[in-house]
Each structure stands twice: as C-alpha cells, then as structure tokens.
Simulated assay, not measured.
Amino acid sequence: MMPQLVTVRVERPDQRAIRIWVPVLPVVLVLSPVMVLAVLGAAVACLVFSISLVRALGTGWRVVSALPGTRVDAEYSRTAVLVSIR
C-alpha cells in the first residue's frame, strides 16, 4: 500500500514543537509531471546500463510500498526532527 500521510515534527528546546502533516496523494498528483520525467530518465538509465526496466520499476514500487511504518529521527545540536510515514 502506498503511504498516505507523512508527519514531520521539529523540536527545539527554546520553543514549542512544530508539527506538520503532509498528505501524500495530493503531493503526488501535483508532482506527477515531474514523476513522469523521472520514470523516463530511469528507463533511459536502465537501457544504458542493461538493466531490466520491468524489474527496476517493480523494485521501486516495492520500496515505496514498504515505507508505511517508517520512522526517521534526526538530531543536530539542540534541534530534533522526527519524520513518521503512515
């Protein structure tokens, strides 16, 4: 299943935490022209490097499908960024 929601939370010790919810489907629809160009670029790269296009697209889809449930925590200095994909 494709991810539905990305939650980004930025925590700083001096201020309140900022939480942003980003729905994935509207972002994908807005960026679909760019995604078409990216798929065409991937197709050309597959032809240049003799990689099966169907297998490469299938692998890419499996990576996107595995994203729900992923959580990324990054901390730099006193600022923490927490990203959760649902």
Rank of each mutant, 00 (worst) to 15 (best):
L67C: 11
V36W: 10
F49C: 10
A43W: 04
V28Q: 08
L67I: 08
V54T: 12
R71G: 07
W61Q: 13
V48T: 08
S52L: 01
A66Y: 06
P26Y: 00
P26Q: 01
E75K: 11
R55F: 10
V24Q: 02
I51K: 13
L37C: 09
V36N: 05
L57A: 14
V8F: 03
S52H: 02
T70W: 11
R55L: 13
A17P: 10
A43E: 11
V27W: 09
V54A: 14
V63P: 02
F49A: 13
S32W: 09
V8C: 05
V10L: 15
I20N: 06
A56G: 04
V27F: 15
W61S: 08
Q15D: 08
Q4V: 10
V63N: 02
D73S: 14
V72Q: 03
I51N: 13
L29F: 09
A56H: 03
R9T: 15
G69W: 03
A56I: 06
L57C: 06
V22Q: 14
P33A: 07
A66L: 11
R19D: 05
M35P: 00
L57E: 04
T7M: 07
R55T: 15
R19P: 01
M35V: 09
L37Q: 12
M35T: 10
S32E: 10
G60R: 00
V24N: 02
V54M: 10
R71D: 10
A66K: 07
D14K: 12
L31V: 06
V8N: 03
L40R: 09
R16I: 10
S32A: 12
L31G: 05
T70C: 15
V34T: 05
S65V: 07
R12G: 07
S65E: 14
P68S: 08
V34Y: 12
R55E: 15
A17K: 01
A74H: 14
V48C: 01
D73P: 00
V63T: 12
P33E: 04
L47C: 11
V28R: 09
A74W: 10
P13A: 06
L29C: 13
Y76N: 10
V39K: 01
L57V: 13
T59D: 12
A43N: 08
G41I: 09
R16C: 05
P23E: 08
M35I: 11
S52C: 06
Q15I: 10
V48N: 02
P33K: 07
P68K: 05
D14Q: 14
G41Y: 08
V39A: 07
V30Y: 06
P68G: 08
G60I: 02
P26N: 00
V28N: 01
A56M: 15
A42V: 11
R71E: 15
V24F: 01
V10W: 00
E75I: 03
G58Y: 00
V28K: 11
V44T: 08
V44D: 03
V28L: 15
